[in-house]
Nucleic acid binder design. Structure first.
Lengths: 197, 197, 197, 197
DNA sequence: TATGAATGAGGCTTCATTCAT
DNA sequence: GATGAATGAAGCCTCATTCAT
């Protein structure tokens, strides 16, 4: 009986995952706006109606994808933090590993940006992800400022917004430079710009 | 006869402007995707069909708005350039005045970013504006690198992409800091990050 | 489960048929160009959107109707052919029974002719039906020429085009003569014109 | 003053002709349904509004074109008739010269056929042209029947409808045979089919 | 008489969402 | 829980026709 329930739960969980992956793939291929729920479910090999057993809307799917990503990034940062590095090193390291994760889920960030523009229900989106990511870095920057490692004449939220912006737009970059390398160079500039002499 | 033509042409020009403004206002209020042509024309106080006497599509309108803006920015930069300032000063000055112009047309840049995501015809858009703006700054940065004012260990196109990214995302900023001030601070960081000692 | 599927499929099939009939009726009443998809679906007692679950366009419906008709004609000809009649008899018989079928689906042939004129997508149409019908008769005529029953100084494709033309235009006829009788008389003339002494 | 009026009349006449030719060209190129009034007037190098100074509708233009053609054919027949030939010769001759004229205005006949199908106002069309042409031949056929040259067991209107049908469909022919030759062959069959022994 | 900008009805098509099976 | 056919609102776009100049 317990197994039966578990089996069911596992099955349900799998269907959810299937939909998430299919959605991710479709978003990546055609963009958020040009992906229809029917399209996602066809790619997932499931019926259209099934979608609504797991998600409330396309926005909901995107949100979930984004949350998953954010959780992963957060975890990595925590890990890095345990080594008690300088804020500078920590920020750099975090930026690098975030870049790596984003690179593997390239479509999410840009989608997220535009999703709020797109959808009929923008209110469902912007609060959750963007700030989510921003917060992760803001902590590091604030403590860097407190320690005197980072300039304090610019508010920390401006700086973290700037970090954020680097990810956002680099995800769109058409330059002939690998994503992670691109990020690395920009972060280098930023670090040189905020490091106290 | 000539006057007659002129009168007509003037009227036509005005109608065009009316539509452009109305579109801008609607885009700003509801976003690009959530603005319908019917909505634009209603705001313009004109019939729906009239739209197609002037523009081929919503994308076309956006493109026009963007081109206009770019032209203005370009002009300001040329003006600033005539004073033969240092690259550093020039870049700063240009960034400031660009910020001002964008501030007055706040909706365009973000819209532009997401427009290619949205529309069924993304191919019509991305080539023209985004690179357009980027190029304006790239020239300044390149010559700064040549003069030895800016670091050369980071390609100029990465730097200009970074400038670009500042505008893009700051236009979205939810921080409680005025747009132009926000830009100014970020540009300060960037300049400190790329200026050679 | 299998029954469930069957039930669904049966229903789907029926809906398809309903749409086809409704379309046929509307085409007959108002002509192809003057029939809107909304009109068809209203006549079918179904929602507008449902149309696109079954057909891609009005042209698609017409094509389907035409294919169905052609298949029926083809079948009748095969049946007649099995009696090994003279080419002359065979042609006459086929023409008569084709007339009967067309009479029962009067609107298709004329519509088909003009459909390629009408639609924005004429390329989708002409290949399939017109030649389709012509071919059916061309075989008979060719073998009649080989057997020496029909004159050979006029190419077979001209003759079959002529047969075809009789159907096309008679379908439009405003004369006060029943369709099938009209066809019969014209075929008589044609047969007398191509029969070898 | 009289000259002035004449000048005006001539000018007016010319504009009319310009529109007619432009319309003919557009009909031929794009088909009746796919030709817009704006398109015609652009091709004519005149303003859209001007159209309505000369014609009531697209149908009206087509009608005029057709009438002109019919008048020409009629004239040729009258000329041929004055030689007092046999009905058979007369019919053949007329058919040949009609073929020539139609060949030079190839688009009209087919357009005419489909026009009644197309337009929102089919009632404006069918009476005038189709019968118009048919009548021309019906006279010849009737007198041929009276003289005993043509079979009388088929009503003359059926025969003339058959003649008519040959023109209609041959104008559409995709066969690799020149129009006039194609017509000639079919008329030969028809004549052999209706000639009394 | 010539013009062409303005109009809006009308057609096509997409798609999120529901609901009976 | 899974399904997918049905739905209709909503958007896009075309074009015949009008009317002020």
């Amino acid at each position: 009986m317990a197994e039966k329930l578990n089996l069911r739960k596992r099955k349900k969980f799998q269907a959810r995952q299937t939909i998430l992956s299919a959605a991710a793939r479709q978003f990546e291929l055609h963009g958020f706006a040009n992906t229809s729920i029917a399209g996602i479910m066809q790619a997932a090999g499931l019926g259209v109606g099934t979608f609504y057993n797991y998600f409330a809307s396309k926005e909901d799917v995107l949100l979930t994808l984004a949350k998953n990503l954010r959780a992963e990034v957060s975890e990595k940062i925590s890990a890095a933090d345990e080594l008690n590095p300088s804020s500078c090193e920590l920020l750099e390291r975090c930026c690098i590993c975030t870049a790596k994760l984003i690179d593997e889920n390239r479509f999410i960030l840009p989608l997220f940006i535009s999703a709020s523009e797109h959808s009929d229900k923008p209110e469902q989106i912007p609060q959750s992800l963007s700030p989510g990511f921003r917060d992760l870095f803001e902590d590091i920057i604030q403590s860097g400022q407190l320690r005197g490692e980072f300039r304090a004449d610019v508010p920390s939220n401006i700086i973290s917004e700037m970090v954020h912006s680097i990810y956002q737009t680099t995800a769109f970059s058409k330059l002939d430079i690998p994503f992670q390398e691109n990020i690395r160079l920009k972060i280098k500039i930023l670090l040189d710009g905020i490091r106290t002499p």
